[in-house]
Design a protein around this nucleic acid. Structure first.
Lengths: 152, 152
DNA sequence: TGTAATTTAATCGTGTGCGATTTAAATTAA
DNA sequence: TTAATTTAAATCGCACACGATTAAATTACA
């Protein structure tokens, strides 16, 4: 590798990983004022979205969809339960598993949350097509990274 | 909004923000084994990259480049200092400011770190051009989100 | 000049995220 | 049937990340 390439490799702005990292934080910041009104953090919001789409999921199922470990989800779900939005209960069919269900309040919150995605899309300044393309590219990237993870 | 659109808005996979969030974690996971060998976490690595590119920066300067608050950076920099990679010292010219400088060990680590970016690019499975395009798109997105943040 | 406003780090509290470990339950093997 | 293995959550320790606040230094400006 020549010296110019080495310098390139030290330019933060040229790191794809950094752009992803920074964009992720930027999303977090833009969500914050909207989600504060709902009494949710951003990861909590994602869990709620998942439950609004499919109620009564196991911790494991939520973890698979969100790519999170139980060590992250368990405390988060306990907070949602403490705030009265979900109910956690061992599955009588398989006592290892914990089912997460929306409470009445949790279901009701969905309406208040319905305007959020449009606000966010608006804030990105992207048209739907560009957003979709970027979304696809990032999903592919994530899939590829997971594959690559096994080799390192 | 019709019912179909509402359903769309509840599909996690269609959330651009979620793809960014998930890709960010995926990067973190892929970096972990590589950075463990250097004794660095991922955000610590980014700070070191910034210092390798430009030594002797203020906390403020690092924060601006990485879009992080002092409440995040101060403890992180203290850990880097405790590990002997940097030295923190008040600027005699302006006692409000703290200068962060690479130690000898911090400079030496650069060589060991030089192979990392190539490993990562390899793991993404992307050719350089695609990676560059995605990088540009994400930078634009971040810029736009920051602009949008003021309106919400 | 002297006070007010601004700037810079640091501190504190809350909430992720993850690896390693533990516990209990269920499944498989012997 | 028991024993070994696997699976699902939970727990613990560590390291971000941020908002709110504080303290100290500098700058603005009346």
């Amino acid at each position: 590798m020549d010296d110019a390439s080495k310098e390139d490799f030290l330019d933060l702005e040229k790191f794809l990983c950094f752009s992803v990292y920074a964009a992720s934080h930027a999303f977090n910041r833009i969500y914050k004022p909207l989600l504060d009104r709902l009494g949710l953090t951003y990861p909590q919001y994602l869990v709620m979205v998942s439950l609004w789409q499919e109620d009564d999921q196991s911790v494991r199922s939520i973890g698979q969809k969100m790519f999170l470990e139980s060590s992250t989800l368990t405390p988060l779900l306990k907070r949602l339960e403490a705030n009265g939005l979900v109910v956690r209960k061992r599955d009588p069919e398989d006592e290892r598993s914990v089912r997460v269900r929306l409470s009445v309040e949790g279901k009701a919150l969905r309406e208040k949350a319905e305007e959020v995605p449009a606000c966010i899309l608006d804030a990105t300044g992207l048209d739907i097509e560009t957003a979709k393309r970027l979304n696809r590219d990032l999903q592919e990237l994530r899939t590829q990274l997971e594959r690559g993870a096994k080799k390192l």
